[in-house]
Each structure stands twice: as C-alpha cells, then as structure tokens.
Design a protein around this nucleic acid. Structure first.
Lengths: 247, 247
DNA sequence: ATATTATTGTCTCGGTTTGATACAATAATA
DNA sequence: TATTATTGTATCAAACCGAGACAATAATAT
C-alpha cells in the first residue's frame, strides 16, 4: 500500500489531504511488478524513509478515474512506461488487515503527524495487480515518502508490511496459471532472446527446472517464434539462435 | 448490484440509511450464482418491483466485515446455504459504470425518493464473484425491493441493468478456465450422479458437445470418482452406474 | 419367451504429445 | 588440431486423445 505521491501537487499528498476527498475511500491497489534479469525473477519494492519498511508500490483511485487507469498512472510514475502488461490478481478484503499502525509510523517518519481518524489509517480493501515489464528498459523511481524503488529477487524478498508478502504469493500463483495461455515471455524479455533465456523465464516463474529438449521442441511447435541470426556470446561453445515473438 | 435488504432492520435499508455509514463507501459486490438442472446451466437473477429491471444479486460490505464474509452473508439470505463454493472473478472499476440512473428508478418504485447526492447513486467499484450451488437444495428468496429471485438459463438471459451482462460473461470465462483444475462438478451436482450428468455439466459450461467415450475415459482415469450401484431410470436401455466424488 | 431399441461401458486403432536419451554440430580455447 | 561446453535435432517408448466399433443390458413390443 505504498502510495504514489507528487510533492508538487499537495492534493495528492496523503498527509495534507485531510479528508482524502480526492480519492475513493477505503479502496487501494497494490501492484506486483515482475521483471527478469540474469536467471532471476525480480519484483519492484519501495523502501520508506527512516523506517526499514518495505512494501509493494500501490496507490489510490481518483474519484473520476477508472480503476485500471489509476494503476497505470502509478506504474508510469515508478517506471516511466506507458503500455504495461497488467492483470488483476485478487482482492484482499479482510477487515483486520490492520495497515493503520504501520501507515502512521511512515507518515510520522516523513513529518506528518496525523490524527487517529485520518483517512489513511482507516480500513482499506486492496485490489492486487501484477505487471510484467522489460527489466532493462526501466530505471525505477522512488516517490516523496520513500528512499528507493528497486528490484529484489522474487525468491528472496525481505519481509513486507501491510501483509504484502501474501499479495506477492498470490500474484506468483496467478502468473503461473497464466503462463501457458498468455505468452508471458513476450513482456519480460527483450525483443530478441535465446531459447535458453525463454526457458529461464519459465523456470523462474514455475520455480522448477524444465527439460531442455522438451521445452525447445514445445516452443518451436507452438509456431509463435521467429528465428533470426546467431548470438555469439564469446563463450567456447555453439552459438544459439536468437528468436523474437511473431506479431 | 441488487442489494440484500432486510426490512426489519432499517440500518440495512439503503433508502433510509442516508449517509450509508454502515457500509464501506464506493464498494459493492455482485455474485453470479450458477446452478445446473436438466441439461442447462442456470443463473440466479433478481427482478425489481414495478420496473422490469433484472440484475445479479449483490450487496455492500459492512465497516467491520470481511469482503468474503459480506458475499457469503448475501448468498445465505438468497439461498439459505452456508458453505457455498465461492470464487472471486474480476473487479469492475470503470468510472462511467453509471448505475445511478437505474438505481434511482428502483428506489422511487419502492417509495424512496432520494436526493441526487445519496450514497447509493454515487460511483461504485464492483467486485464480482461466482458461486456454484446444488440447484435442488435451494429455494431462492427475493428481498424487500424485489419481486423475485429465480433461476434463468445461462444461455438465454434477459438484458440486465448495471452492466451485469458483462459480469456474467466474465464469470463464465473464469468458470471455463477453472473447469479442469477445480472439479467444478462436485459443487453443481447432487452427491450421486451418472456419467451423463457430469458430462452435461461440462458441456453446459463449455458451451459445446463433448465426445462421450473420450469424456468417460478421461474422468475414470482421473481416479476421482467412486462407483456405486446402478441407476434404473425406467427407460428401455442399459442402466448407468451412479458415481460420487472421492473425498 | 423372444425380438427390438436406446443407452451404456469398454476396447481398439491411428495420430499426436511428452519424457528421456543419444548424438552430431559448433564457437572459442588450449 | 584436439578439447570442452552448449545447442539443435533425432529417436524411442509411454501416455493421451479423437474416432469408431461392439457387446451388454433395461424396458417395451411382439
């Protein structure tokens, strides 16, 4: 439930927006942003000033804004990207999600001393999304309340506040379920990639090794890949072909 | 966005709950309740008094209530059932869902003449669920604002208000995707059933005919069915076995 | 009793997919 | 030129699926 802020616009500043009247109340979203680098699945995390708190990027929905647009607006502020692949994942709606205590600490650490009935300390239903982006095309940007917005290995995350570890888990499950249907690799890899790259994406998401020959045969038989020239890495072995996804 | 009401409790009466302070604001849920009878997939619809308006059953979330519990509470009022199979499906969050005009008509037809800034006429984000229940074990109950709550054929629904036809479509898609993984039949059929019953459930959900022999072989190979005695229907042909799902 | 009819349970055939292994091709290095 | 790690493809058996064949059988008609 890390919030996208813009200090130039006080209306978006949660400490000063006393009644939160610019946002829909009790509704937040959180996004699990996946990237892929080396052979690791990565996730974007924010770290708050002076707290050692980690959380997913998230935000609120403006009164006249589509929910999906709110999420895209937030992702644009963190990544600069416009056409991000985005999927809904799950709504976390338990009444005891109890985010107020941590939120109060964060606001205090940033100089906002708010009353106990401040809207940010109220209950929130959180709509979880996951996004897939190309790791290399992004330099993640922190916002006003946070030290950093950076990549962490999905299989080695720190503890997150606001119950966000459960959200990551759910996002991973959903991503796994969608893996075969939705050509996930197209969003996580650069335009051209080797078969090994593609296999490593699948392995990182599924959390298990796949058989090389079977994977290669299956991908080629799907008839979704276009083969280009070879990729000479400089290592002492046969150079693999580069592939791209057919349009 | 048909709301579960109880006339004995005016706090739950949306016409009289002026500021809606018992509920989370801007948040509603709608449920697509699936049943199966004969060879048809069925869906529960409410019809409003004096309006010819049809809509899905739905409701609001109390301030200290879990989202999932709110949906179960609503389903219990409509069906009397407690342990209903329930899945989240999608969040409809567009700002122009424009449910106010129809809602005003409904309230008016029920004797509530509300102001334009009444909370029920505000924007709502709707969290869509689908439920699977055993058709025979239920006598659907209307609420205070509605003439009826009854079953309709899923493949022949009337036009629904609040954009609910799109919600039904999304629920059907999700159900189809989950069909193989989640043993959907266990929730839609009585304890004992024939292979033909099970096949008809699959056909109704997928919207297409399946090959009898292949379906039978596949189901038996899954090793999830227990075979019981035969079912003598009285018709002039070989009697089929009865099956139940292994626990 | 016997024939008829519709439905059910199972088997078989060929085609496709999948798991597992083998092996030749090849890019850089020794 | 030999060596080494990796890559692309072939092969073989097992599993799976679509399609059809066929015997078994519950009630009815003769």
């Amino acid at each position: 439930m890390r919030r996208y802020l813009n200090m130039k616009d006080t209306r978006k500043n949660p400490g000063q927006d006393i009644d939160g009247k610019n946002y829909l109340t009790n509704i937040a979203y959180d996004s699990v942003v996946f990237g892929f680098a080396g052979d690791k699945l990565k996730i974007l995390l924010m770290e708050y000033h002076n707290t050692k708190f980690f959380a997913l990027p998230g935000g609120f929905v403006l009164r006249k804004e589509n929910l999906n647009d709110a999420v895209r607006r937030g992702l644009k502020e963190r990544t600069g990207l416009d056409n991000i692949y985005l999927e809904q994942c799950y709504v976390f709606g338990d009444a005891d999600r109890n985010t107020g205590k941590e939120m109060k600490k964060i606001l205090k650490a940033n100089g906002f001393d708010v009353h106990d009935d401040h809207w940010l300390l109220d209950r929130f239903i959180s709509i979880a999304y996951y996004a897939l982006i190309n790791y290399e095309s992004v330099v993640p940007q922190p916002d006003a309340l946070s030290d950093s917005c950076t990549w962490y290995d999905a299989d080695n995350l720190p503890e997150l506040i606001f119950g966000h570890n459960a959200i990551v888990e759910k996002a991973l499950q959903t991503l796994r379920n969608n893996l075969d249907q939705r050509l996930v690799g197209i969003n996580l890899l650069p335009k051209k990639f080797t078969m090994k790259d593609l296999q490593q994406v699948y392995e990182a998401i599924l959390g298990k090794k796949l058989r090389r020959t079977t994977f290669q045969r299956k991908m080629l038989n799907l008839d979704i890949l276009k083969r280009h020239g070879k990729f000479y890495s400089g290592s002492a072995n046969k150079a693999p072909y580069l592939y791209s996804f057919k349009k």
